[in-house]
Amino acid sequence: MDWEGKVNAVQEPGKGMHAEHTASLHLPAPTVWPMVLGLGITLIAAGLVTNETISVLGLVLSSMAAVGWFRNVLPREKQEQITVPVSAEAAAQASAQPFRSPHTPVLVRPAYSFVSGIEAGLAGGAAMAIIAIVFSWIKFHSLWYGINLLAAGSFIGWTDAPDSFLSQFHPQGLLAALAIHALVSVLVGLLYGAMLPIFPRKSLLTAGLIAPLLWSALACSMMKVVSPILSERMNWWWFVLSQVAYGLVAGAVINLRVKVRSAEFQALPFATRAGLHTDAKIGKDEGRR
């Protein structure tokens, strides 16, 4: 008996089916954490009009709720199994192939690796540094200009220092630039490592051109607000070139490690590519549910 048959049976008692088949389905399990999080946030706010300790209590509750909620859904969503009556056809299908909720974890295939993100960041950072050095040599006949310009992010007084000063070697400038460059390169590399497997189509175009252009546009517009003097000293065309070099190299490393451009990888469902544990063989209709 299909859905329509069941409805007829509900609507017209007595004409219903008498032979019943059952199957099980999974629904999200009850959890107290959403309520605790709501209470925690409310108490944080209430502390503003009562006593600070109330806010501290709210913060503790919110933190517990956030962890509890996180563990409620990852690595596998907690569900409760419910037995429901199904039609004979559905029951036969269920016995041939066990019922799986779209949320049921079957395939665990990690698509994301921290190591590949760090490697990509370091390799991209090296490529970017080469472009920066080439720029310094061509424009200022010095290896150090670009490095010191980056270090000016840490040393405010260097922002409007003369070109001759920035073209000289300064050990503290080298250390500061290395620290900034390594940190940002690795962070962006981790971001690439996370994002490219999620959006694998035309990954090199995304990594090597679209992302660098978007980032350059953002950096350019922000720099004009944050430090107009430094913004004027930047050569944005070379900046874009260095970003593209970073993106291409970092993207290539991710591709080598994760094979994001392979047909097999691109055929995986979005949730699997995104690093969530799910059923790789999920059908189109099931995916909508």
Binding site: P28, L37, G38, I41
Partner: peptide, 19 residues
Amino acid sequence: ARDMAFPRLNAFSFWISAF
């Protein structure tokens, strides 16, 4: 459908409004 798209967010939304 069997439920809302985000059942836990649904519960959270109610409770924070109520509180």
